[in-house]
């Protein structure tokens, strides 16, 4: 089943097409890679799918039935979508624990006034922070973490969301091998739980190793798609990356 699809999706920035009539479908339970040179529209695509950017035209279809032509950032959550950011976006002057708690407590304005957190919320936070080895640092401010730890905290935050579709924007970039292993094992667990992962990544080796399916983008359009083995050998892919 296609858990999320785009139909003729368009996003312009001042006349330049960042995403140009893009139609792709992402299979449920897969790890799907999106690769392409810098500026090819990968991050813009994720920003559109998570509501951070408003689409100009086209539509997004969730679970083959829910058609969306407008999506606000806070609605992505209701469609089971969550994400990390390429330039890590944490709640810096808050503790590590609060960074997690804030995404698990009640969304309703009035209910949240009468709630601090419950044992259940605390347990989820403990569980996801232990997964990324940050539980010991729970009372530190996020701003004081190292770069790698910050990236892991962002991943832990998405895990706490218990979403259906996870977008990871270059989660491995700048990570030590030890931390890469943590991220890989997090991916494995998600797939075992039949979640869907969409991964933007530049490291072709990782794409081969992790992905079931790959989309290759260039200048906002789809250049090729298929299994990593079949796609990565294509001439136009190599051309887009390294030139003639």
């Amino acid at each position: 089943m296609k858990i999320i699809e785009t139909k003729q999706l368009v996003k312009q920035f001042g006349g330049v097409y960042a995403v140009d009539r893009l139609s792709i479908g992402i299979e449920k339970g897969n790890i799907t890679g999106i690769i392409g040179p810098n500026g090819s529209g990968k991050t813009t695509l994720i920003n559109l799918l998570s509501g951070v950017l408003e689409m100009d035209s086209g539509e997004i279809i969730v679970e083959e039935t829910k058609k969306i032509t407008r999506i606000s950032p806070h609605q992505a959550y209701f469609y089971g979508i969550t994400r990390t950011f390429q330039n890590v976006r944490l709640f810096e002057q808050m503790t590590v624990l609060d960074n997690i708690l804030v995404v698990v407590t009640k969304r309703n304005v009035f209910i949240s006034l009468f709630e601090k957190y419950t044992k259940y919320h605390y347990k989820i936070s403990e569980e996801v922070l232990k997964k990324v080895d940050l539980w010991e640092k729970r009372n530190q401010l996020a701003i004081n973490l190292s770069y790698g730890q910050r990236k892991l905290l962002e991943i832990a935050r998405t895990l706490a969301m218990k979403a259906e579709i996870y977008f990871f924007d270059e989660p491995f970039a700048g990570l030590f091998p030890e931390m890469r292993k943590i991220v890989s094992s997090v991916f494995q667990e998600l797939i075992q739980e039949h979640k869907t992962i969409v991964l933007i990544e530049h490291d072709i080796g990782l794409i081969r190793e992790l992905c079931d399916y790959v989309f290759i983008m260039d200048e906002g359009t789809l250049l090729a798609e298929g299994s990593p083995e079949s796609v990565l050998e294509k001439r136009e892919v190599i051309k887009a990356y390294v030139g003639e």
């Binding site: 950032p73 806070h74 950011f85 944490l90 304005v109």
Partner: peptide, 12 residues
């Protein structure tokens, strides 16, 4: 800290 980030997590 980050209004865009927190809204992506479902807060209006």
């Amino acid at each position: 800290e980050d209004e865009i980030a927190i809204s992506v997590f479902g807060y209006n």
